[in-house]
């Protein structure tokens, strides 16, 4: 009996590790490639044993004219700010949708926006930001990422707020509390896990946003994804450097997810986490 259960556990681990490896094939390859010299990268058959080198990282972090640290900080700032803005706009809206039933459901419209290929509207959006003097600023990227993320955020928050018994805020209302008070004193604390979940999800999606940032950022506001794509040069892809940049961009979110995964899992359960 004991032996059998050990065997099963080992088998389970083997299966899980194999699955994880298959899903992460491109990332594993990026990590390996990032430690290879250019000659090892372009050798056939592919090399698995090689003398690791930090040249690629050196190029990414310290090469002239390539400001990786700025791109990294931009990503951190843009992702965090977007999460906050999504909450600021999303919580009241979600409360409104959850508690006040009406025939018009703005949610469908918001999610419908996700269907439109973003680059079609990119020129009008660009014109708008040019007029506002916001081209190549983090503010403009925060705004556009909010547009992308807020529908899903509201969608999830509505689920969490519906979990809160409406008798609680009805009671508060009878005591004469304003909507604002109800929101900050009752809804906010009670839906904290949901809020954390939305923050995590928004952060991750903003961190990996590429297409829109590609057009709207030039130098100052470039996030890490666009920064990595700078290694796709006019003629060739600089495999080593782009791999190093991808690796460096993945590590922080990996650590982030490691610590916040409980909230992430809760994102979709509308607060109904039961044992």
């Amino acid at each position: 009996m004991r032996r059998r259960s050990i065997k099963r556990t080992v088998l389970l681990y083997v299966v899980i590790i194999a699955i994880v490896a298959v899903f992460n094939l491109p990332i594993i390859n990026a990590v390996l490639t990032s430690f290879k010299s250019n000659i090892d990268i372009s050798s056939s058959p592919p090399k698995w044993i090689f003398r690791p080198t930090l040249t690629q990282y050196n190029n990414v972090l310290f090469a002239y004219g390539y400001n990786f640290r700025l791109y990294f900080m931009n990503s951190v700032i843009i992702s965090s700010m977007t999460s906050l803005v999504v909450l600021a706009l999303g919580i009241p809206a979600a409360y409104g949708i959850a508690r006040y039933r009406s025939r018009v459901n703005p949610l469908g419209l918001l999610l419908g926006l996700r269907l439109v290929p973003i680059f079609v509207f990119i020129i009008p959006v660009f014109i708008l930001f040019t007029r506002m003097g916001l081209v190549d600023t983090r503010t403009s990227l925060v705004m556009m990422n909010t547009v992308i993320s807020v529908p899903l955020g509201i969608f999830l928050l509505v689920g969490f707020i519906q979990e809160i018994p409406s008798s609680i805020d009805e009671a508060a209302r009878i005591d004469g509390a304003s909507v604002f008070t109800i929101l900050t004193r009752i809804i906010l604390p009670l839906s904290l896990p949901g809020i954390a979940a939305v923050v995590c999800l928004t952060f991750i999606f903003t961190w990996s946003e590429y297409l829109m940032s590609l057009i709207l950022s030039f130098t100052r506001a470039v996030p890490i994804t666009v920064g990595a794509s700078f290694f796709i040069t006019a003629w060739e892809v600089r495999w080593g450097e782009i791999s190093a940049a991808i690796t460096l961009s993945v590590v922080p979110v990996f650590i982030f997810v490691f610590f916040v995964q409980d909230y992430l899992v809760r994102a979709f359960t509308g607060g109904a986490l039961k044992g």
């Binding site: 660009f126 040019t130 590609l214 057009i215 794509s229 796709i232 006019a234 003629w235």
Partner: peptide, 17 residues
Amino acid sequence: GREGFFEKQATILAGRS
């Protein structure tokens, strides 16, 4: 970067930046 290079330039020009 080369990805989206001309698209970005076209946007800058059409967007009068």
